[in-house]
Design a protein around this nucleic acid. Sequence first.
RNA 1: GGGCGGUUAGCUCAGCGGUAGAGCAUCGGCCUUACAAGCCGAGGGUCGCAGGUUCGAAACCUGCACCGCCCACCA
Length: 895
Amino acid sequence: MELSKTFDPRVPEEHWFQRWIDLGYFKADAARPGPVFSIVIPPPNVTGQLHLGHALNVTLHDVIVRMRRMQGYNTLWQPGTDHAGIATQNVVERELAKEGKSRHDLGREAFVARVWQWRETYGGRILNQLRRLGASCDWSRERFTLDPGLSRAVTEIFVRLYREGLIYRAMSLINWCPRCETALSDLEVDHKETPGHLWYIRYPLADKSGAVTVATTRPETMLGDTAVAVHPDDARYRSLIGRKVILPLLGREIPVIADAAVDPAFGTGAVKITPGHDFNDFQTGRRHNLAQISVMDTHGRMNDAAGPYRGMTREDCRRKVIEDLGAQNLLEKTEPHQHAIGVCSRCETVVEPMLSYQWFVRVTPLAEQAIAAVRAGHTTFHPKFWENTYFAWMENVYDWCISRQLWWGHRIPAYWCDRCNEMIVAAERPAACAKCGGGDLRQEDDVLDTWFSSALWPFSTLGWPDETPELARYYPTSLLITGFDIIFFWVARMMMMGLKCTGQVPFRDVYITPLVRDQYGKKMTKSRGNVVDPLQIMERYGTDAVRFTLAQLSVQGRDLILSDDRLAASRAFANKVWNAARFVLMNLEDAPQPIAPVEIDALALAERWILHSLDQAIAEVTAAIDRYEFNLAALRAYSFIWHEFCDWYVELAKEPLRQAGERQAAARWVLVRCFDGLLRLLHPFMPFITEEIWQALRPYIDERDLAPHLAIAKFPTPAFAGALDAQEAAAMDRCIAVTEAINSLRSLLGYHPGQRVEARIKPAGAAAEENGASFRAEFERWKPYAATMAKAASLGLAPRNENTPGGMVTAVLGWCEVSVMAPGGFDFERARAALRKKLDEVAAHHAQHEARLNNPDFVAKAAPEMQEQMRQRAHELAAQQELLRKQLMLLAEAN
RNA sequence: GGGCGGUUAGCUCAGCGGUAGAGCAUCGGCCUUACAAGCCGAGGGUCGCAGGUUCGAAACCUGCACCGCCCACCA
């Protein structure tokens, strides 16, 4: 089979993904036996557009899912999308706006129909983008949070929680977005540091005996003031407590109250209390039974309660209030003031605390269970420190406002009887009012917070509340992979709802992905314009390279900094693998047939060495993925493939491959065996290129019941225990060290890369003294390798006592000297300088060791094995130093 | 105001108690029939700072600094 000279990712990407899907490889079958690995995708918003966060997330999912599938797990990766209440409604509203219409022009029913229509047309975009990344989800199980089945789960749990008193409806102060015209949860409010002002306003005493000055950042809300508060111990104001002041502009009389929450040191120490528009004041108001006055409507405009300011926007009202106060000489002063203001996380509009009837989840009892489950280790975070974040939030949660005044979402299953005002919460619309028998029931207008349905995702997608085979088999899921930004929004709430609904945690492990930043370490944001489009880089570097890069940079607990350099390096790696494949294939018989295995004992040292190295790489990569150390797994696979397999084995295989007969057959088998193994190992990271190559290699693979495709082939496990003993492993290390030494000398001596050199080694230390004879035997075995790799015309083994001939330049290793004949006219000063440098290094190390060994404390306290190790090392260093000096002396005479 | 994470070669990161490592970038030499998206070689670091624990610290402890993030009702 002919492979082109460089790898073009396009064709295999399109081809293989469709094949895998067509063949049903990613389908989960609950009836299949075996251990289970299940995971749910964090459902992207239907309005979503693939960004690097998704790309990273999906890549890591796919790495572990593919590995587990290949390992024989009954694997389910559940895909789907989130209806994303506000986000989606906004998109369609914008579309309508272009036609000059608002949702109110359409009415609720028509508008919702329009959103569904939008979803039919564009809702699949994000999932198609995930597919392009190679996501091996069970696409036949795609779910949407507004699907009938999932909606049923939402209704079911809502009714249950309501009946248990864990969901309640109440008039309360909530965050309100005047633009979205809906309530928001605490989490949907971002706090933005903003420069503002502190206005000092005089409130005259009712008895005209003076005034009290309050400081505020929001003068417009004074129209809703129902008290002025001071600290009970504040001597300045003690006499005022219980008296009345006149609210300027409106002339209302309000009391001066004492409350310990007031900070006497801030502002004037007197604070206006607006229970209808401030969370603190709301609490204070409750403590003192103050009236709550709302001065704005749902659009953030001043309402009737604002008297003369009625109809103004909040902003206009503020200006006018300041102006009027100034005119009445009630504005004492204005100071610049920096403070955090809450804005809608969707549209950045300043949120308004508003009084309204809303639905809440009583979170505390649910949170207790969720905390306990993590404390007990039923769910573990990776990296573990994220558990602190989780606990900190869970331990201080407020009730969760779940009602939204939107049209797109799960409509709350509560029904009102307009005749007797009875409210009924039920899964099905009741035929008649339970209290008065009236038949005209009206369903609650509000819908649920999107996160309410997301919280059920791990089990609602599996059919809950029905006891489906899928639920029994795949729940609790094995792992959740997500970003830290939704630990509160999603992870915490899944924990609470999962435990509440099923009695079990929704997932065993939670892996928190790094945050993707640009090459300057900046967060990617639209406003910075530094957002990298994954589809573009996939186009440029190939999907496999993008995946590999993301995995390789996924360090636990650190941000991920993506750069073109890294991507280019991964593309180079893909190309390296491709070319290694070309080499292997061009050295196999044209008529493919399985190559029978060769007995380990019949293999040459290098062959056993590479099989052994493959084993080690497999073990380490597998262990790293098991620990979610994707970066280490990717790096290990990379270094095995490039530096061990390509740099060494492929080179060493060339010689036996040229021959006919047994040695060639052995080399062919080892090549195929290793390449097969490394393709399997690499497949989870780079599925496309590996499948493409594996198909070409497959006919040569000798395996019973060999899978038709790599995507479902067995993941490799170490298979060559005992192929290489410790002594042989050490021998190969020596071979590599000698090769490197000769190559280094070649470079120093200015040899052309193609030129062959005369070289020799002379053992020293243990290699010479203790096993001279066996060393010679060992040397004979790896000498051809070193000679090949270092392009040595001859590589001799010199007797220990023989002086190195003049004209040779020597490098000193710990256990031997390596010498290479210098070319005619070589300037030996360069060699002397190199030796001197090396001598300095060795001398410094030796001095270090000596100092340590001469330290009485070290001798008295250090572990005996350590002392022995140090003594040996010092001994070697001393010998090495001696050899270096001698070489330097010999070289002194050269030239 | 609390809390979390980071600080190791120019860059991105390993190492987490016993000789400072890798990849990329840089420099020198090579188109050596798998691969120039390649091969061979070289240079480059008082491991953020200051203390402490230890025979021994990049690693453990305590402060501090800087960068980043999260949470927080000082109006």
